[in-house]
Amino acid sequence: MLRTILTYPFDSFGRHAYITWFQFLISYRRTMLGPIWLLVSPALFIALLGMLFSRIGGNDPAVFIPHLAIGLIAWTLITGFITSSTTVFQRGRAQILQGGLNLVDIVIINVFTTVLNFLHKIILIVIVFIIFGIDVSFYSLVSLIGLALLIANGIWLSMFFGMIGARYRDLSEVVQAIMRIAFLATPIIWMPGTDGRGGVMGAFLVYNPCYHFLELIRAPLLGNPIAPLSWIVVITITIVGFTLANFFYKRFAHNVPLWV
């Protein structure tokens, strides 16, 4: 798998980007607002929960709402990768059995689709930043490194969960159940507080991989420092994940057409 990705022809990326874009357009064709619908739910979520929870948690809305907005939207990327990956090969059954697209192609289209959804939602972060007048500096660009790492992880996640999900259909149920609770366990609708990792919430943060991914994206945008632990965790997960997915790909990829 690694070799296929590293030597992936550039024009194939272009083809897949086009396929993704096309499928995206088709799925909104009969709606009036089109892809703007993607923004409605998170916008309502940020507006209502932002006001409510900043009061409940006793946080300043100007601090809490940007925290919530970035957290929620980066979360859609994380959860999008994980939940969509469990059924990715079942959905690509026609292409797999016709021999048109191989597993890596299908994984790349899946990652593109999730990223395309995410890109639309970035505008909400921009709006929140303008409303609360948050300054961005050069340090904020570090966020892009976090984003790139997360997207790279989407590739191995799709491949790994895709293969397991094709064999064990239970996986998508399991993942959905876990992701819902993981959303609450990750500091998105709450803030870790000033005592941070050492406090009551410590375990929720240290042992939650989603938190570390989120930190790499969110902290630079809000001008907060990133703990070295987050870098270590994310880079370790990336390396271990790709190795694991590569190993599974070698052993089981040939079975996927039989499983879907």
Binding site: I26, S27, G100
Partner: peptide, 26 residues
């Protein structure tokens, strides 16, 4: 290269022309 179940994978919402492009890309 095989031609198996040639009508599989067509998008019902898309136009004929768009389906040509899609299948071509695939």
């Amino acid at each position: 290269k095989g031609m198996f179940e040639i009508s599989l994978g067509m998008n019902q919402e898309a136009t004929g022309l768009e389906n040509i492009y899609m299948r071509g890309l695939q």
